[in-house]
Amino acid sequence: MIIGVILILFLYVFFSFVFTEQKNIHFHVPEGWPKPVYDFKQNRLTEKGFKLGSALFFDPILSRDNSISCASCHLSFTAFTHADHKLSHGINGRIGTRNSLTLINLAWNTSFMWDGGVNNLEVQAINPITNPSEMNHGLSNAVDALNASPRYRKMFYSVFKDSIITSQKLLKALAQYTSQLVSYNSKYDSVMRKEKNVSFTQNELNGYTLFKNHCASCHTEPLFTNYGFENNGLSMDTVLKDFGRMMITQDSKDAFKFKIPTLRNIEFSAPYFHDGRVNTLKDVINHYTSGIVVSASLSKQLQQPIILSEKNKKDLILFLKTLTDKYALYNQRFRYNYSETLTK
């Protein structure tokens, strides 16, 4: 009797080991950072899941005519945004209405898109896949295209133990990749961690003080956003007529409010603002010092003009450049072809 019980227990342990050979990846939360918002319990991270997500991210198979992928508008070298494009273009060169956002530290995002209309990282990807100005593919067509691919069926099977691909599996796989695009190794981070031989220059330190006085209430450390929505005094583009957050809340108080974006890797995420209207950090700062358009919903933080000397503007930019994380931008793991190792 006892031997029987021991045998059953042994077999149970043996088989559970065999069937769960996929190791979970531990999601690292940098010291002093808040708890991630994304619920990893609903999508246990695995190496194979990450590789599958990466393969999907770089594959134009998700677009109607096989011409563009997620990476077309979110390039790792440019902080996962679309460099040189104010507004990104989708299939057939159709132009969208907003500047593509950076895909960094998404696990902490409380909402997605410039208007915060999307409530969960997993469902965010439905938008670029289905938007007529982006991939213009029905979600079910994208799922069908994947199901028609023996390579993907194999890959999905290795991750989900099921070769029938559903939209849920597609979206969870993409989230495995995008949630792990974390950036916390900038010079700023090293200085904050008091690492040896790293310190701010005098100019950067002055920029940091200015930043804390003038910018940090919205672009709050350590993620450099408080995830709120504000009207930062940009004039309305008369062609795009974008009311921002108001389109989601139906509340006129939210007119012209947009998500406060993170400033991490801002050196490489040009052009700036929700419609990409300016190209340089200098122009961004000049907007805040002398370009604010007053309207009913203008941010409280911007009611008083920000006054900065030319030297202070330069120092502030030097500080912002300390938020560049080359380790994240040039990380092999985040690049195309990393996923290839999965099928070998």
Binding site: N120, L121, V123, I126, S140, T166, S167, Q168
Partner: peptide
Amino acid sequence: TSVSGALDGDLDPIKGMYWAWHSG
């Protein structure tokens, strides 16, 4: 349920009962 990410079965967004740009 509306904020629970990608769901399947009758809640699969391909059923045409899901707003993408305005989750829900």
